[in-house]
Design a protein around this nucleic acid. Sequence first.
DNA 1: AACGTGTTCGCAATCGTTTGCGGTGAAAAT
DNA 2: ATTTTCACCGCAAACGATTGCGAACACGTT
Lengths: 372, 372
Amino acid sequence: MLIFSFVRRLLKSIVIFRLINSLKEMKKGNITIKDLARELNVSPSTISRALKDHPDISPETKKAVKELSEKLNYQPNSVALSLRQSKTNTIGVIIPEIAHFFFSAVISGIEDIAHNAGYHVIITQSNESIDREMMNTKALFNSRVDGILISISRETNQFNHLQQLIDAGTPVVFFDRVVESINACKVIVNDEQGAYEATTHLIEQGYYRIAHLAGPQNLTISNNRLNGFKAALADNKYMIDDNLIKICGLGTYEEAEAITNELLDYRFPPDAIFANNDVAAYGAMTAIKKRGMKIPEDIAIVGFSNWRFSSLIQPALSSVTQPGFKMGQEATRLLMKQINLGKDEEAITETISLKTNLVVRESSLKRPSEQV
Amino acid sequence: MLIFSFVRRLLKSIVIFRLINSLKEMKKGNITIKDLARELNVSPSTISRALKDHPDISPETKKAVKELSEKLNYQPNSVALSLRQSKTNTIGVIIPEIAHFFFSAVISGIEDIAHNAGYHVIITQSNESIDREMMNTKALFNSRVDGILISISRETNQFNHLQQLIDAGTPVVFFDRVVESINACKVIVNDEQGAYEATTHLIEQGYYRIAHLAGPQNLTISNNRLNGFKAALADNKYMIDDNLIKICGLGTYEEAEAITNELLDYRFPPDAIFANNDVAAYGAMTAIKKRGMKIPEDIAIVGFSNWRFSSLIQPALSSVTQPGFKMGQEATRLLMKQINLGKDEEAITETISLKTNLVVRESSLKRPSEQV
DNA sequence: AACGTGTTCGCAATCGTTTGCGGTGAAAAT
DNA sequence: ATTTTCACCGCAAACGATTGCGAACACGTT
């Protein structure tokens, strides 16, 4: 018995030595189930079963397998697994830009749910380009991700690539920037309501000539915000002056600054600006400051998205917060639901609408003395 | 001939009908090479060869294959390809946090090079947690990515998981937050020089009691910045007062604010602060402002990283820029070089050091009247 | 007629893992 | 002594694509 054990141990160390050697030779020598099988003189099936505590395998074999696997630090090849099971346990995300606080928050929400469900997350950026977006959808499809979360790019005005994806059976959930015409799961924030509240807030503060820096109107969210803006004006018997509604197509800081300058050049410039997003708001603030005008005394500003540093700038920027983290969570939950659907079950097409929240800071407050 | 053509066309449409039908049934019915083979009555090998213009295949067959493949929108299964070729054409990235302007820039740089080389990029966040980082390395390894780019977490103080990765033959390139003790490719910025220049700048502006908000000292970058700070003081014959060097371990805004308050409580508080990063600088600014002190008149501030909004806050924050995009590019180039290495070639262990650049803004400028 | 040549394609193995089914041997039941 | 039972394990096919090798066939050449 002792001798046997000794011999076995000797054999094992030789085995390990041999493996390490061949590993060095092969450079990228990842241990496979076959390696374990060869060294223990059993079949690969046995290794596979032993590693997952299949009842057909004897305790001794299991022990031996597990020990060797531990010692050689065996790691199952996910690629092979994915192929075998036609399931990658991976979901893909397509967003316009990572360097965007809102989207970063969404990603964290996505990872939160996905990781707990045992999924990996592949993130891709479209960089606001439809070509890039199409490439990404194709790449994710070819990688056979189990599902896709997408917020479309600023440029996206046709949706074949997305419809194809859905037709091929890939579960898709849209978030934030959704596509109206596609029948699928969607998670949005109530942009219209957010814009309505922001505008109402400006009205309540006593501003009467309110401009809007709008986003590109092919994006539903931009359109909704514009509608909310108009609705608030209308409900308060304010006239809607199209000259005070400017579309910022690029979404850059500089563009907003230039467009704000146009507004300020009017004979009767606005006394408040509601910006489609915080970046535009920053641009507006810059233009205003450069003219020596004061915020909010001369012009009030409200933004949208509540970037991380909106509270840090001077004056602190009022903004509509979007629940990014929660949106990521909800979108991923919907996706998981779809993925786990039986083949025969009907596809679900739920739409979740999350509430926004207006955070009032200095940039939109009339001074006490000036308040009505 | 005409009849033949007609029959063939008829057959084809039936074929397609059948496929579409079975596709609907199978829900996730991705077209495979076998499907094409069955419908055209050839072997899968022929399909494979036809699709890649192998000379062994007749022009007619090629044409038929390509047409059908086009019509059914055949997309090769990347998973199967990866398994077959032991190559995933994917690289993994591990960063502490996505919601960080510097890292976002790095990612864009990475994608720039990687996409051009035909690689996908998988991004994972460690959230500054070593556990998460270990999980991510394992997950990426199991996914058999062709290489990994990593910037370690704030918590990471042991490196077994990374050494194992390298020992297993996975190409790894460290960037920004590198591990000194591991022999591998690294891309860093010259933190010491950056800190040296920032500190020298403060000295030249006439500040004489300069404090430093340092980062956790297990991070080489933090340590280098501290060293640069000290070196600048020493070279200018300034004394190094350890009371003016405070370590911010968490890296949060609030922590920096609290620690700055400690500095301000001194009988002789500092008249300038060089912060290890911009977030800490923001915290310091908040603390200073809350006391009614003025920047830079009472206290000057210089940060590190040059966040996107450092130029927007009041006063605009002087900061040391790090070339994030370029860093991502360089790191990826190094990784590509490693990946394309022959099996027998010696592993490369290059270290690239990028230059920083001090951007002087209001927060560190003595007023003209007060300047020497 | 036999052989050589070239074109066009299929067979089968392979990547790493899983799994239904069948096989072996020993112990237990008849 | 024969059958049944059970524990334990291996065979082989499968996931989708690639590729070395050989086969079949139609030519042209001797």
